[in-house]
């Protein structure tokens, strides 16, 4: 109901913006050209006559809609408390998953993230393509895995989103692959982890063009060799994590951490219908403990009980 009210409020706001645009257009219109079309003539004429009232009302409607939208998306005190409790539960589970972490390890290096599967996602960022933000032949209704809750107090505002469509072979990321398989899926074990890109820096397009220009001229340099090594690491990382090299470059550009070990477990509701995915990622030498480990199972069971207390799987 709250969401429906929000969408209605937003629709009214956009409709009013359209009305304002029409007023601006009508004021500049030559009425002489509309003599043949009586309805359009009447519409433009009336708009002109009532323009001041329409503009004032429109501005008021936009203002009220904005306030309503803000009130609707603003978290209630109950919601804030629920979020805090869930965050605590995820923090406890993080301690179970990564038992040997020293206190000095930054919290964003070992995270537990709960992704929810949604059928519709109207806005994604960054865009996957120039002409279609959702990617080639993908739409808001393609099926997506969005971050719902994350452990720690940082990296909470992330816009990470993975494609998890009905044509599951096109799913993205370890989260998408876990969703597709419906089981536990780990990339990067204790010994052979994903390539560590956290100490490497992003190479701009100009830099890459310069490297290829040097290559064309058959000039060898250390920079060229190091770029080739980095490029192969990025491609290897992308292939193993089921993402595109472009996405990995984007992460590096934004100086986001690139986990070296990722474990995904599919999450189901009480009726065993798939709801989302729980991801445990690590950017250091500590990988998440095994899913069959008794401590992991007990911790997961406690986390799921806590999430159910707040009806997370019913929303």
């Amino acid at each position: 109901m709250k969401q429906l009210s929000y969408y209605i409020s937003k629709s009214v706001e956009w409709a009013t913006v359209f009305v304002l645009g029409w007023v601006g257009y009508a004021l500049d219109f030559d009425l002489e050209r509309l003599k043949k079309d009586e309805f359009l003539h009447w519409l433009v004429d009336t708009t002109r006559a009532e323009a001041p009232k329409i503009v004032i009302c429109s501005v008021m409607i936009i203002g009220i809609s904005k306030i309503i939208s803000w009130a609707l998306i603003r978290k209630s005190i109950e919601q804030v408390l629920i979020d805090r409790n869930i965050s605590d539960a995820l923090d406890k589970f993080r301690d179970v998953c990564f038992p040997n972490l020293e206190k000095s390890v930054p919290v964003d290096h070992n995270r537990v993230t709960l992704f929810k599967h949604v059928e519709w996602k109207s806005w994604i960022h960054p865009f996957k393509g120039i002409f279609n933000p959702w990617g080639y032949w993908r739409w808001p209704w393609s099926g997506w895995l969005c971050v719902k809750y994350r452990s720690g107090h940082v990296t909470q505002g992330g816009t990470t989103i993975f494609l998890a469509p009905d044509d599951a072979q096109n799913s993205e990321g370890v989260a998408g692959e876990t969703w597709r398989r419906g089981e536990a899926y780990r990339v990067g074990g204790q010994l052979n982890k994903l390539p560590d890109l956290n100490k490497d820096s992003y190479k701009s397009n100009i830099y890459v063009c310069w490297i290829y220009f040097l290559k064309k001229l058959c000039i060898s340099s250390d920079k060229m060799d190091s770029y080739e090594i980095l490029r192969s690491k990025v491609y290897q990382y992308a292939e193993n994590t089921n993402t595109s090299p472009k996405l990995v470059w984007q992460r590096m550009k934004k100086r986001k951490t690139c986990p070296t070990s990722i474990l995904g477990v599919v999450i189901e509701n009480r009726k065993k219908e798939r709801w989302g995915v729980l991801i445990m990622d690590s950017s250091n030498e500590h990988s998440c403990i095994d899913t069959s480990d008794k401590k992991f199972r007990e911790g997961l069971s406690a986390l799921i009980r806590e999430l159910r207390r707040y009806d997370i799987f019913e929303r």
Partner: peptide, 20 residues
């Protein structure tokens, strides 16, 4: 647990039944 292990381009990949 019947986890399957693969090595893909030098990276360990494991998949098996969900703990649930």
């Amino acid at each position: 647990d019947q986890t399957t292990h693969e090595n893909q381009n030098g990276v360990d990949i494991y998949f098996g039944l969900s703990p649930f």
